[in-house]
Simulated assay, not measured.
Amino acid sequence: MEKLFIIKIGGNVIDNEENLSFFLGDFSKIEGKKILVHGGGKIATKIGEQLGLQPSYINGRRITDDNTIDLVTMVYGGLVNKKIVAQLQAKNCNAIGLTGADANIIPAKKRPVKEVNFGWVGDINSETLNIKYLELFIENSIIPVFAALTHDSKGHILNTNADTIASTLAVALSKKYQVRLMYCFEKKGVLENIEDDNSVIRLIDKEKYRQLLQENKLFEGIIPKLDNAFDAINTGVKEVLIGDAKDLLQNITTETVGSLIK
C-alpha cells in the first residue's frame, strides 16, 4: 500500500502569517500523496466581531446560527482556504481548495437538537464519504486542501470540526492507502505536564491513554484529539501523530519527535 499523509493544521499556526508560511513551505516539501485539512476559528471570530457578530460557545463548541454559518463559510471556505491554496501554488505545490460539498465528497447530517441546539453543525460518517472523486485528485498529484465545512444534501453548508474531518478522511482512505494522520498545532505533542513543553509523551497506546485519563494528567483540550486518534486507529488508520507544526518534516519520518499513537 502507498503512503498517504493527512495533515490537519490549526491553532495559532493559521492566525500567524509567518508561522503559516513556514509550515506550508515544509508541507510543500513532503513527497508523495498528501491532504491538508484546516480550521480558522480565530480568524472567523475576529472578522465576525468587525461585522458586529459576537461568537457564542457552549462547552467550548461554537454555536452556528444563520449568521455564523454565513461567516464561517466565507472565512473557512473563502479567505483562509484560498490564501493557503495560493501560497502552495507559489511553492510549486499544485493544490485545490475544497469543502465537503465539492464533488459531494463529505455529506453530513445536521446535528440533532438534544440539550443544546448547535445550529448548522454537521456530523459525519466515514462510510458515506465519496472517496472515488477524492482519489482522482490524489492519483493525479493534485493536493486537496479541505476547509472545515460539509453539507447536508439539502442545500445547506454545515460547520464541521476540522479534527473530525481529518480523521474521517483518514478512516475512509485507509482501505486503499497506508495512512498517517497528523494533527499539527503549536505544542510539541501530548504533554505529561502542561507547564513543561518538553514533557512530550512519545508513544501512546490504549493502555497508556487510560492511565493518563485516570491520573488526570491530560489538558482538557487534547482529549478530543486523542479520542479522534483512537477512533481512527480502531477503524484502519495505521498511526496518528500529534505534534508541533514546526516539526512537520521530522514527524513524517520514522524518527518522530511528537506523540505517536498506535
Rank of each mutant, 00 (worst) to 15 (best):
F137S: 05
K206D: 04
R180Y: 07
I131T: 10
A95I: 05
L51I: 11
G52I: 05
L226Q: 02
I106M: 08
F137C: 07
I58V: 13
F146Q: 02
E127R: 14
V113S: 06
A101M: 15
Y76N: 07
D205V: 03
F146C: 00
R180Q: 11
C184N: 04
G11P: 06
V121E: 00
V190E: 05
Q250F: 14
N59T: 02
L213T: 02
K176D: 14
N251I: 08
E17C: 08
G10M: 06
A162E: 02
N251T: 04
T64W: 03
I58G: 06
L53N: 06
D244G: 11
N125S: 10
A44S: 11
I84C: 08
D70R: 15
N67G: 13
E192S: 12
K246Q: 10
V113C: 11
S153G: 08
N19G: 09
G11R: 09
S199T: 03
I43Y: 04
T235N: 12
L213D: 07
K187G: 00
L191A: 04
F219A: 13
G119E: 00
T68H: 00
V171H: 08
I124G: 02
Y76L: 13
K217D: 10
N92M: 10
L4K: 02
Q87R: 12
H38M: 09
E220K: 13
E220R: 11
V179I: 04
N159A: 01
N228E: 15
F22C: 04
T254S: 14
F185H: 10
G97I: 07
I43V: 10
A245P: 06
P112G: 02
N161I: 10
A232S: 03
N12F: 10
V171P: 06
S56C: 13
T253V: 13
L212Y: 00
N104L: 09
Y76R: 05
H151V: 06
A166N: 07
A166V: 04
L129F: 10
F23M: 00
D196W: 03
N81P: 01
V179Q: 01
V116P: 07
K206R: 15
A103N: 13
L71I: 03
L212V: 00
L249R: 11
I261V: 13
I30E: 05
I124H: 01
G39F: 05
A90V: 12
T256S: 04
D231E: 14
Q178M: 12
H38F: 08
F118W: 13
I124E: 03
N228L: 15
T73C: 08
A147N: 08
L241Q: 09
I233K: 03
L24T: 09
Q54Y: 09
E207P: 01
I69E: 01
E17V: 12
N140F: 09
L191V: 04
E115T: 11
K132R: 14
H156N: 15
Q89H: 15
G10Y: 02
D197P: 05
L181S: 01
K42M: 12
K238R: 12
A95C: 11
Q250L: 15
C184P: 00
I252F: 12
V257Q: 08
N12I: 05
A108I: 05
G39C: 08
R180T: 15
I252S: 07
W120V: 04
I43N: 05
F5Q: 01
F5R: 04
K238H: 14
V13K: 08
F23W: 02
K109E: 13
K83L: 12
V190I: 13
